[in-house]
Amino acid sequence: MANWLKRVGLAAGISAALAGMVRAEEAQFDLVLRGITAGSLSWSGAGDPGGDYAVRGVLKTSGFAALLKKVRYDATAKGRIAADGTYSATRYAEDADTGKRQSQSVMIWEQGVPRIESYKPERKAKPWDVDPTSQKGTVDPLTAMYAVLRDVAPGKECNRDLAMFDGRRSSKLLLGAPKAEGSQVVCAGEYRRVAGFSPDDMAEKTSFPFTLTYAPGADGKMRVVEVAMDTLYGKARLVRE
C-alpha cells in the first residue's frame, strides 16, 4: 500500500499535511459483530473550517472473523472545509479487499466534479454504472466518515446530509437531530444505497440504519464513542477504545 501511494504521489503529501496542521485528531474503534470483536477501524486527520483537511483511514477484520472473510480498506483523502463546515473533496485514494474483490483507485474532484484517475484492475462497464460527471458535490467515503466521526463542539453533533461517490457507486449518509441522554448525545442515522449497485445488491437491501453516540471528551468536545448499525451480517457496533 505504501509503495502504491508513493507512486501516485499521495503518501508524502498526506503525511506532510497532517504534520503541518496543529489540530490533528486520531481515533481507534473495535468492530464488534454479534458480540465478538471482528476487526478494527482507525483514522487520523486534521482540518478546520475555512482551511484544508487531510485524513487517512484503515479498516480490517481480525481474529476469527478474518479466518472467515478477510476485509481490508486503506484510504487517504484531501479537501477543504468551508466556513460553515461543508466538506469538499479534492483527492481520494483507496486500496480495498472486500473478500470478493481487490481494487486500487484514485479519484480527483475538479470544480466539485469527480474524475476517476485510475482504477485497478480494469473492469468492463456495467449497465448500472454511475457517470462520475453526474456526481458534482459528492465526497468520498473516507471524507464522509471523517466528517461524521470527528470530535465536535457541544451543540454541533449530528445533523449531517452527505452525498458520497466511491468511483463506481453513489450513496447517502444521513444523520438526524441530536437527542440528549444524560451527559451523552445520540442521533439516528442511515446509510442508503442510491445507484451503481448491482440489481441483486439493491434487491438485497438499500437502507442501513445506525445510531451514533457522543460523550464528553477530556478537552470539552463531544466525541463519538459508539456506532451501532445494521449490516448484512447482523447487528454490529464500532466501540471507541
Rank of each mutant, 00 (worst) to 15 (best):
R115A: 05
L173T: 08
K124N: 11
L174W: 04
Q111G: 06
R160C: 00
W43I: 00
G217T: 08
R56E: 15
D201N: 13
V224S: 06
E226F: 01
P216T: 12
S40D: 09
Y233F: 04
Y87A: 08
V106G: 04
V55D: 03
V139R: 02
G79C: 08
V194W: 04
S118I: 08
I81M: 13
R23C: 07
G79E: 01
L173Y: 07
M21V: 10
A2R: 07
G47Q: 01
D201A: 14
G167V: 13
E94V: 13
S171T: 07
S42H: 04
M202T: 11
S170C: 00
A12V: 11
G63N: 04
I36F: 05
R72P: 00
P114Y: 05
E25N: 05
K78T: 15
Y53T: 08
R123F: 14
R160D: 03
V113E: 12
M145A: 15
E26Q: 14
F197T: 14
G57D: 12
K70Y: 09
R168H: 10
D30C: 02
P114L: 04
E226P: 06
R80P: 03
K100C: 02
L18H: 13
T61G: 10
A228V: 01
A77I: 14
S171D: 04
Y87N: 02
I108W: 01
T98Q: 04
R23K: 01
K172W: 02
L41D: 03
L173G: 08
A89Y: 00
L142Y: 07
G189V: 05
A144Y: 07
E26K: 08
Y233K: 03
L67G: 13
M164K: 08
L67K: 15
V58N: 09
E226V: 03
V130F: 07
F197Q: 11
P216L: 12
G79K: 01
A27G: 12
R101L: 04
G63L: 09
G196I: 14
L175G: 02
Y191K: 10
L59K: 04
A11C: 04
V224I: 07
D151G: 03
A228H: 00
E94K: 07
G35V: 00
V227G: 04
P154S: 10
T213G: 08
S171A: 14
K120Y: 10
L142W: 00
K60Q: 15
R115Q: 07
L31F: 05
V148R: 01
R168C: 03
K120R: 14
G51E: 12
